[in-house]
């Protein structure tokens, strides 16, 4: 909250990027970085589970049977591009160009939706081939790890849409700027997580 007068080392109002204008916004950005650290450990636990269980295919298919190079490569490039467009949105925000900022957010959301669509179709194909969560420890770990990331991205899409609406209603203010900045941090973080899913799940699967 706004406890302006006793915040240590806060920037005085107006200096620095717009999202840091008010001290309580600065606190929230800091809090969100700490949240990212917790989310990192959450994914670490899922990666650890996957790493321990990925050879435990039971009677089900292994990674090579179900991973489709074109599919996961496409997903990767879509998400990388969305991270770029999300960065451009923050760039426009810092230049005060609300129109461009919102436009890049829309592009990011659309890329996010297409990423989720590709992922869902990948899952549906797997399930149609009999590779489900219930098949083996490997598939349980696979669906949970990749699905948790997908759930994060889906939440990010909803969240970014809400921020977009608030930008339209309330204009670009220090508060809306902070909200947009925080969701952009979230989005870039999810991109980092995906890079490791791409490497440890998919590329390692291709190597097996």
């Amino acid at each position: 909250m706004a406890m302006a007068d006793f915040l240590v080392k806060a920037p005085s109002a107006g200096r620095g990027p717009i999202e840091y204008t008010h001290e309580d916004d600065a606190l929230r950005i800091f809090g969100f970085w700490v949240f990212i650290a917790t989310d990192m450990v959450l994914f670490a636990s899922l990666f650890a589970t996957y790493a321990v269980l990925y050879r435990h295919v039971g009677h089900g298919p292994g990674p090579l049977q179900i991973f489709d190079v074109t599919g996961f490569a496409t997903e990767t490039f879509i998400l990388l591009t969305s991270s770029f467009t999300c960065g451009l949105s923050t760039y426009s925000m810092h230049r005060g160009q609300k129109g461009w900022m919102m436009a890049w957010m829309v592009v990011t959301i659309l890329l996010g939706i297409s990423f989720i669509s590709f992922e869902l179709s990948e899952f549906i194909t797997d399930v149609a081939q009999g590779a489900t969560l219930q098949t083996s420890a490997f598939l349980s770990a696979f669906f949970t790890l990749v699905g948790t990331h997908g759930a994060h991205v889906s939440l990010g899409i909803v969240w970014m849409t809400l921020i977009l609406i608030q930008l339209a209603i309330r204009d670009l203010t220090p508060t809306t700027a902070r909200k947009a900045f925080v969701v952009s941090l979230y989005w870039h973080f999810l991109d980092i997580v995906w890079i490791f899913i791409f490497t440890i799940v998919y590329l390692l699967g291709e190597m097996s």
């Binding site: 899922l46 321990v52 435990h56 009677h59 089900g60 969560l133 219930q134 083996s136 420890a137 349980s140």
Partner: peptide, 29 residues
């Protein structure tokens, strides 16, 4: 605490969704 979150979620998935993280069949450990 995130690790606890994951441990509980996975056990819940085993119990409610029939996953095989910690079962003694189908590769669970």
């Amino acid at each position: 605490f995130p690790v606890l979150t994951v441990a509980l979620t996975l056990l819940l998935l085993d119990r409610l969704a029939g996953a095989h993280f910690f079962t003694i069949f189908d590769g669970g450990n």
